[in-house]
Computed example of a mutant assay.
Amino acid sequence: MNILYSTRVAATGGRKGTIRSEDGILALDLAIPKELGGMGGATNPEQLFAGGYAACFENALLRIGRQAGHRFADGNVEVVAQIGLSRNEADAFMLSATLFVTIAGVDQATAEELVRGADGICPYSNAIRGNVAVAKSVTVR
């Protein structure tokens, strides 16, 4: 496999520690969310995953749109990722995801087709397919 990009991020202290990328650009404190009994006040792995998934999926959507002849202006496409943390029957932690996609300038059928195409090329979607339940909500405006 030809790797196009690689990065390294070190975590220290688990969910209430820190993360730092090898180039120092990403350097964040982590905190357990209040909803999970923590103090909150800093980001957590689920928020980081949601941000990465939303950004990556939107970029995939813009690419699929361009290939289909649609040129979306900034603000015409928005992707919000909601990541859930729960437990399964074996008491193991599990993630779920919902992508809320809003697209301006196309009809509903076209928007849904573009989202299906983006789902096929997004690295996050491909990485979690078959392991994480992902729902998609597509809205046109």
Rank of each mutant, 00 (worst) to 15 (best):
I103H: 03
C122Q: 05
I3F: 06
F57P: 00
D91E: 15
G120W: 02
G65F: 05
A50V: 02
A109T: 10
A133S: 13
I64T: 09
G84I: 05
R129G: 11
A68T: 06
E46H: 07
T18Y: 00
E46C: 03
G52N: 13
A97M: 02
A27Y: 06
Y124I: 07
N76S: 10
L95K: 02
T18H: 09
D91M: 12
V80F: 01
G37H: 06
L30M: 10
Q47H: 08
D107P: 01
R87K: 14
G65Q: 06
V140Q: 08
A111W: 05
N76P: 03
A118S: 13
I83A: 01
R71F: 09
R66E: 15
F72M: 09
T7I: 14
A109F: 02
V138Y: 00
P33N: 12
F57V: 00
A104R: 14
Q67A: 15
L28I: 04
R15L: 08
V9W: 09
G37I: 08
I3A: 07
R8D: 12
H70Y: 13
T18E: 12
L114Q: 04
G37Q: 09
G130R: 13
G105Q: 07
T18F: 03
G65E: 08
M39Q: 15
A118F: 08
D29A: 14
I121A: 11
N88C: 13
A42C: 10
N2A: 12
A109Q: 13
G69S: 10
G117S: 04
I25P: 01
A42F: 00
G51Y: 05
S6G: 09
I3S: 05
T102D: 05
I103F: 02
M1G: 15
G17V: 07
L95G: 02
A133G: 10
G52V: 08
A50K: 02
L36M: 15
G105I: 10
C56L: 07
